[in-house]
Design a protein around this nucleic acid. Structure first.
Length: 874
RNA sequence: GGGCGCGUAGCUCAGUUGGUUAGAGCACUGCUCUUACAAAGCAGGGGUCAUCGGUUCGAGUCCGAUCGUGCCCA
């Protein structure tokens, strides 16, 4: 790209349309960035590394606002670091989403009248890969629309060979260390997905069910138990009571008859039974309830499984073949007919677990599964945060993290699926169990077979921060980019994913945490703070908004709503507002270009600059420092707001307007202002770029002739703070605003000029007569000037002549309102200063402040009184 | 049932360690097509900071209770 000189830029500005058209520039710019290799991270670089791994989206997923939000945050962090000179890696990729993906492909097969069993395991997996190639990973293309600065050469997938090798390696290591084991327990079984799921994949919700009280046994030897799952009574193997419960003491150790089955079951005493709840007696179904399973273990009770994998009754005569809900009614009916029902409560609202994937009611099921012994891993994961090696933002989220890692149950990692990493364990004919590492040969020969199950998807995504970099090989990438810098993700997967990465990362990488900071964000909600959901009808496709308002508008809206750890409401009107902001930036820069703003040559020294120029450079410096500090603290909402107000309120509304006066006058001052205007926009565009990359890139390359903002330097404060200039311009703004307010109250048309006499000599405003006249639309005082009102500010005096046409009541209202406000301040200050307690206990600083306020208020009252006195009668 | 958070303008939210007349965006009202921008400009209206009590010279901010609401865990 060639250098663009200012005149050429001005010419180019003429060709810029008066409205920013995002769709015309976005795709073009993105492809240019990728082609230029800006997003590629080089392990051989001398620069310090900055790494963020993408929270891997699901291969079946498509872009939703949650992604757009998270990616906006990550993209802005990495873009800023890249500008700061870091070797920046934003690692892209996806996870294989075992259950979700298998479901998608099974549904496709079902349309052809096939099941996965018809195809067989190998052919089915082949089919999944085929599906992935054709329609998986839609989201990756959508990420380009968002402007994500990821290194596409490094795209990874959890089922890739290298990542699979990582999974097998860590499985083997954990197995050898005794941290993975196989055991028969009660697990959460989804009768629709036909697999076990982990505790945290169960969602509890209050459902309407029934509570049925059933009498077991006969006469004196009878006990009433209550249940919400009557069908499980077929598998009861005991009734349990509390050991101290007098009511049942005589029955402990005896057997009573289980209705409908004729089986006799023991009455056992177990301290975990709550004698206060219900009748104080509980039925015990070890094969179908986690608590009962434990009671069964303690009392060596048999387990009787009565439901199959689809939750259909497996035996027991008339009930065989009924599903669990049909069986429930049928069994209650049968018990009722038998006179066994003592009480029925319906509806009975109670908490019921559902599969987080498909919402089917979970059926606790006793089965043999693989487990991770999380104790030592979770301890290390907790300690890393406790001792400060890993920081959680916002800090309040730490307690949730600790509460979880410190009370963790072992993690069930086997899934009865075909799509996923198959458990690398082989069973021999003599009952041998062999765990096979990635470089081992599986045992061959008659009778050996591999475990049928695959691993939980979180098992592989827990390795993501280092498996994507080549682990277990000691690659240059791993050397350079691990540990990663920051993990940006939603608080909702703190347990699902973050904790897994912490546990595996610390274990696999010899105690090095996978990231030093965890920056948690909230969920995107609608403009009324409601959760977005398809069924509620308030879900929004971010692509629609990007089409309508531009990617930058969406990104800015999301960033501006991102208060740490809190949910982000977003509405279309707000995206429109951001679009307006982008358009404002566009037009302000267009104005600058048309007026010869330049970045050529050094910025003139302060002595050669006007107060206005020194003021905006001072404000710019302050903004650079503020935005920079907020970035370090992940305060996206605040930094976006700071940029919004600086750009719009200070640069566009005041500096650009003030610069017009200087530019029109011409001469050396105009030349200096062109340079300052160019500089201010240059720096402002750099500051905005990480959040709104497209519009800033388009404008900045035109303004500066530079190659690209993506690789431009991030601004730093330049030591141009100037308190005197800031105070002087603040006074100027005050005068102009006061006059405008007067004009508004008087009902004057915006364009109407008003004769005015300005007495500014010797005051802060001495040099600003021209801007005051221009901005407040005041014309010179002519012969016969008669002041209708006056504005004494900072020693200066502005008098206006309305040719007798003044609306006296309106002016009186305005002045009286001001006086009332000042009176209120005076009263409050007087009260404080008359208070002994205040004078003796408040700090001298505060007391002095209040004294100053009182004086100012009294001066105002005096001044306004005078103005009121001078108003004509009427 | 246990734990955590929240309740500030019509809506969505800021509000550092207590200390000017409590702020922003959007929405609303009035006047303007002023030659960068009507997707704009200028000005304006709008809040007894959920309620009650307490601590303090002073409370939106700290403490307690109540009501409402959301989330996590069981």
């Amino acid at each position: 790209m060639t250098e663009t000189s200012p005149p050429a830029a001005a010419a180019e500005a003429q060709t810029l349309s008066s409205q920013y058209a995002p769709t015309e520039v976005e795709a073009k710019l993105y492809e240019r960035w990728v082609a230029a290799g800006y997003f590629e991270a080089d392990a051989k670089s001398e620069k310090p590394a900055y790494t963020i791994v993408i929270p891997p989206p699901n291969v079946t997923g498509s872009l939703h606002l949650g992604h757009a939000f998270e990616h906006t945050l990550i993209d802005s962090l990495t873009r800023r670091k890249r500008m700061q000179g870091y070797e920046t890696l934003w690692q892209p990729g996806m996870d294989h989403a075992g259950i979700a993906t298998q479901n998608v492909v099974e549904r496709e097969l079902a349309k052809e009248g096939l099941s996965r069993h018809d195809l067989g395991r190998e052919a089915f997996i082949e089919r999944v890969w085929q599906w992935k190639a054709e329609s998986g990973g839609k989201i990756l293309g959508q990420m380009r629309r968002l402007g994500d600065g990821v290194d596409w050469r490094r795209e990874r997938f959890t089922m890739d060979e290298g990542l699979s090798r990582a999974v097998q390696t860590i499985f083997k290591n954990l197995f050898d260390d005794g941290l993975i084991y196989r055991a028969e327990r009660i697990i959460n079984w989804c009768p629709r997905c036909l697999t076990a799921i982990s505790d945290i994949e169960v969602e509890y919700q209050d459902d309407d069910g029934e509570l049925v009280s059933i009498r077991y046994g006969e006469g004196d030897a009878s006990i009433v138990v209550a249940t919400t799952r009557a069908e499980t009574m077929l598998g009861d193997t005991a009734v349990a009571v509390h050991p101290d419960d007098e009511r049942y003491r005589h029955l402990v150790g005896t057997e009573i008859e289980l209705p409908l089955t004729g089986r006799r079951i023991p009455v056992v005493a177990d301290a975990h039974v709550d004698p206060e709840f219900g009748t104080g007696a509980v039925k015990v179904t070890p094969a179908h309830d986690p608590n009962d399973f434990e009671i069964g273990q303690r009392h060596a009770l048999p387990s009787i499984t009565v439901l199959d994998e689809r939750a259909i009754i497996t035996a027991h005569g008339p009930f065989q073949g009924l599903d669990r809900f049909e069986a429930r009614s049928a069994i209650v009916a049968a018990l009722r007919a038998d006179g066994r029902i003592v009480a029925e409560k319906r509806p009975y609202t109670h908490s019921v677990g559902h599969c987080s994937r498909c919402k089917t009611t979970i059926e606790p099921r006793q089965s043999m599964q693989w487990w991770v012994k999380v104790g030592p891993l979770a301890q290390a994961a907790g300690d890393a945060v406790r001792d400060g090696r890993v920081a959680i933002h916002p800090k309040e989220m730490e307690s949730r993290y600790f509460g979880w890692v410190d009370n963790l149950h072992d993690w069930c990692i086997s899934r009865q699926l075909w799509w996923g990493h198959r458990i690398p364990v082989w069973y021999g004919p003599e009952g041998e169990i062999v765990c096979v590492g990635p470089d081992d040969q599986p045992p061959a020969g008659e009778g050996w077979r591999q475990d049928n199950d695959v691993l939980d998807t979180w098992f592989s995504s827990g390795l993501w921060p280092f498996s994507t970099l080549g682990w277990p090989e000691q690659t240059a990438d791993l050397q350079k980019f691990f540990p990663t810098s920051v993990l940006v993700t939603g608080y909702d997967i703190l347990f699902f994913w973050v904790a897994r990465m912490m546990m595996f990362g610390l274990y696999a990488m010899d105690g090095t945490p996978p990231f030093h900071t965890i920056a948690l964000h909230g969920m995107v909600r609608d403009q009324f703070g409601k959760k977005m959901s398809k069924s509620f009808g308030n879900a929004v496709d971010p692509l629609d908004w990007m089409d309508a308002y531009g990617t930058d508008a969406l990104r800015f809206t999301l960033a501006r709503g991102a208060n740490p750890g809190t949910d982000v409401p977003i509405g279309e009107e707000w995206v429109q507002g951001s679009r307006n902001f982008c358009n404002k930036i566009w037009n302000a820069t267009r104005f600058a270009l048309m007026n010869g703003a330049t970045v050529e040559g050094p910025l003139p020294p302060a002595e050669e600059l006007s107060t206005v120029d020194r003021w905006i450079l001072s404000r710019l410096d302050a903004t650079v420092a503020e935005v920079d500090a907020l970035y370090e603290d992940y305060q996206f909402a605040k930094l976006s707001d700071a940029l919004f107000h600086f750009a719009w309120d200070e640069v566009f509304d005041w500096y650009v307007e003030l610069s017009k006066i200087t530019l029109q006058a011409g001469g050396a001052e105009a030349a200096a202002t062109r340079r300052v205007l160019g500089h201010v926009l240059d720096v402002t565009l750099r500051l905005l770029h990480p959040i709104v990359p497209f519009v800033t890139e388009e404008l900045w390359t035109t303004l500066t002739g530079g190659e690209s903002l993506v690789v431009a330097a991030w601004p730093q404060p330049e030591g141009r703070r100037d308190a005197a200039a800031e105070a002087e311009i603040a006074t100027l703004q005050q005068v102009v605003t006061e006059v405008r307010r007067f004009r508004g109250e008087q009902g004057l048309k915006p364009g109407q000029k008003v004769p005015a006499r300005l007495t500014l000599a010797g005051t802060a405003l001495a040099a600003h007569e021209a801007p005051i006249r221009t901005l407040a639309r005041l014309e010179p005082d002519a012969e016969g000037f008669a002041a209708a009102t006056s504005f004494p500010i900072a020693g200066a005096l502005v008098e206006l002549d309305l040719s007798g046409a003044i609306d006296v009541p309106a002016e009186r209202r305005r002045l009286e309102k001001d006086r009332a406000a000042a009176e209120k301040v005076k009263e409050q200050c007087t009260k404080k200063l008359a208070n002994e307690g205040f004078l003796s206990k408040a700090s001298a600083e505060v007391v002095a402040k209040v004294r100053g306020q009182l004086e100012a208020a009294e001066a105002d009252i005096e001044r306004i009184g005078g103005q009121l006195d001078r108003l004509p009668q009427g």
